[in-house]
Every structure is written in structure tokens, then in C-alpha cells.
Amino acid sequence: MSDLPVRRGSGTSSLGRWPRTADPFEQMRELMGFDPLEQMERLMGSDRSWGLSFNPAFEVKETKDSYIFKADLPGIRDEDLEISLTGDRLTISGKRENEKKEESDRFYAYERSFGSFSRSFTLPEGVDAEHCSADLKDGVLNLRLPKVPEVQPKRIQVSGGSQDKGKVKA
């Protein structure tokens, strides 16, 4: 692993050729006895697993007969996901565990995020809580909340007086 190119933005650098002291954080630790990541950890109150904080993207849409929620949840297992509906409040929460890191591991990029998340949505009246369904496939959560039949829009025919035209009432 002597030549590992890392592309970020418009430039390319080959970090594998740099001496270990080229790491600005390591240089700062050596020169000042200061570790900025350690200071951030103290503020965040956790170990280095806080990453970039795991905040999954959601898509919410309404169809004529249901509300559809989709969320990108890569790396989340079924047993690490909890979905609850209480009244008009839908809560989706879960966690993605940090992978075990070896002491000898040397990262050139660490952009994946781990941790717990919780999202709550306030729903309009008329969700049929008894017939909700959810599946997690290929890292995408699909949640369907059907509307109760009374809430679904119904088309009402309008009849005009055109049928009575020309008729004479006695």
C-alpha cells in the first residue's frame, strides 16, 4: 500500500508516499502536546465513534390512499431499527454500530458516520395504524401508512338542472 491516491475536490495527493509526520494533527500533537480530536471528543462526550453523526435522509410523500416514508439506512440491521406510531406521532429510530478498528490501522479517509438517530414526524389525522407495513431491503426502509377509508378523498358528482330543461311541470 505504498501509493494510495486520495481525491478530494480538484486535487489529488498520494498520501502513501508522505512521511507519517506530514499529518497536520500529528504534527500539532508533537509540537504542542495538543490533540484537537481528543478535545472534540471531550466536548462531544464520547469516544471517536461519533464520526460525522449518523443522520439518514428521508423522503416522505402522500398518495391518494397512504403516506409513504423512505429512508436511506445503509448498514442498519432490522433488529437495530425501531418504528412506533403513537397517536399522530411517527418515530423512527435506530443505530449503526462502528466497525472495530485495529490499533495498527491507518486511515487515509474516514467519512462514514456511525451512531444513533431518531426522527419524529407529525401525521395528519386519518392514518390506519392497524394496517401499516415496513420493510428494510438493500439499505432502504420503505414504510407505508395507509389512510382510513373515511379520510380518503371521494369524488362527488354534481348534477345540474340541465335534465329538467324543456320539461313543463303541471
Score class of each variant (00 low, 15 high):
F117N: 10
E99F: 02
Y110H: 11
T63I: 01
L141E: 12
L81M: 05
K61E: 11
E102T: 11
S116E: 15
D3Y: 03
E79Q: 11
L37A: 07
Y67I: 15
S10A: 15
G139K: 02
P149V: 14
G11E: 15
T122H: 06
E111I: 09
G16C: 08
F114K: 00
S104N: 10
L15K: 02
E99Q: 05
G51A: 12
D164L: 14
S13G: 04
S46G: 12
R8M: 12
S113P: 05
I83F: 01
S53Y: 14
D65E: 13
T21F: 03
V151A: 15
G160T: 15
R112T: 13
R48N: 12
M44N: 13
M32P: 01
D47N: 12
L141N: 06
S118D: 06
A22W: 04
S13H: 09
P74V: 12
R144A: 07
E102Y: 05
R29S: 10
S84M: 01
D80L: 05
S133Q: 12
F114Q: 02
L123F: 04
G9F: 08
D65M: 03
M32E: 13
T122W: 02
G9H: 07
A134P: 04
R77T: 07
E82P: 00
G11K: 14
M1R: 00
P24N: 08
Q152I: 14
S113E: 13
W18N: 04
P124R: 08
F117R: 06
G11H: 09
D105R: 02
R144I: 14
G51D: 14
E62T: 07
A71P: 01
Q157Y: 03
V140G: 00
D47W: 11
S159F: 09
R42D: 10
E111L: 14
K100V: 10
K154V: 09
Y110S: 13
G160A: 04
S162I: 15
M40G: 07
L43P: 00
V6W: 01
L37W: 12
E130A: 15
S49C: 11
Y108R: 03
T21A: 02
G33H: 08
V60C: 02
S2K: 06
Q163F: 10
L31W: 09
M28N: 04
P124G: 08
